[in-house]
Design a protein around this nucleic acid. Structure first.
Lengths: 144, 144
DNA sequence: CCGAATCCTTGTGGATACTG
DNA sequence: CAGTATCCACAAGGATTCGG
């Protein structure tokens, strides 16, 4: 059908290979519960701590702090602190943080485009405990 | 439907919005520990269970089974069972599964391109516990 | 060969209370 | 306002054993 050419998927040979570790790290970050929401909000410009908190429904103070620290550590977000009273801290995407937006949005768009297909696949899978049948050299076998 | 221009980060307003749920699902899948390795191996063509197990370093039988079930349920992978003796089961990417490769590879490439920058950011962050100083309207404040 | 079932350890994240 | 600190619940995942 389709193997032949297309893009080489020869990346990620094993969990301990070269660029694989970096991939795992960024995947863990974008795969975690809050990072992408934060990045999405910050994509619109710099925000204060409580602006983020209000803008991201359901996030706790703790997780907002932790996730922001992680993003800052990765160099995706800058933290600017103003020791005024009351204190004020601004968070902003770095240039690198902004470049992450493109590949991430490609994935988000994929998810949107395929969400019906996925939902249908779920339905099919969940409603088919029985019809697990199989075809071997032209002969149909039924599972027992 | 989907936003025409991909640069707009106006997606993902809140964890409970429309296409957001689908996004979260697929993100959880690609963010989990093994799915992408499996997809990467299957990108080269159909594989048997133990071929996958041998090809993915460190995966347990349990997690291979569970992750394959998840991918199958999402409609990303097909499972073909041959009730021979010994039994044989082949796994293969679906067409939808193959379309996922492109956006995922974009992300993998981003990770590879930025891995040094991220490592440097880590170094900077981890080695700077003290110099926490701040600039307010042209004036530098030192933390105490 | 392919997997289900069980046990157990660990990490992630929520709730709450407290500080400067 | 912008965090820490603590406690706790739950789910992910590893190891092992059993079964068709």
């Amino acid at each position: 059908m389709s193997p032949g050419h297309s893009e080489l998927p020869a990346d990620m040979p094993a969990p301990d290979a070269g660029g694989c570790l970096a991939t795992r790290e960024i995947l863990d970050r974008i795969g975690d519960k809050w990072s992408l929401y934060i990045v999405a909000v910050l994509a619109n410009g710099s925000r204060r701590f409580n602006e983020l908190k209000r803008g991201i429904d359901g996030i706790s103070q703790r997780m907002l702090t932790l996730t922001l620290r992680g993003l800052e550590r990765d160099g995706l977000v800058t933290r600017t602190m103003y020791p005024t009273i009351p204190p004020r801290v601004d968070y902003e995407l770095t240039d690198m943080g902004r470049t992450l937006l493109k590949p991430v949005m490609a994935l988000v768009n994929w998810a949107n485009e395929n969400q019906v297909a996925i939902a249908e696949a779920h339905k099919r899978f969940d409603e088919a405990p029985e019809p697990d049948q199989v075809l071997v050299q032209g002969v149909v076998y039924q599972r027992r």
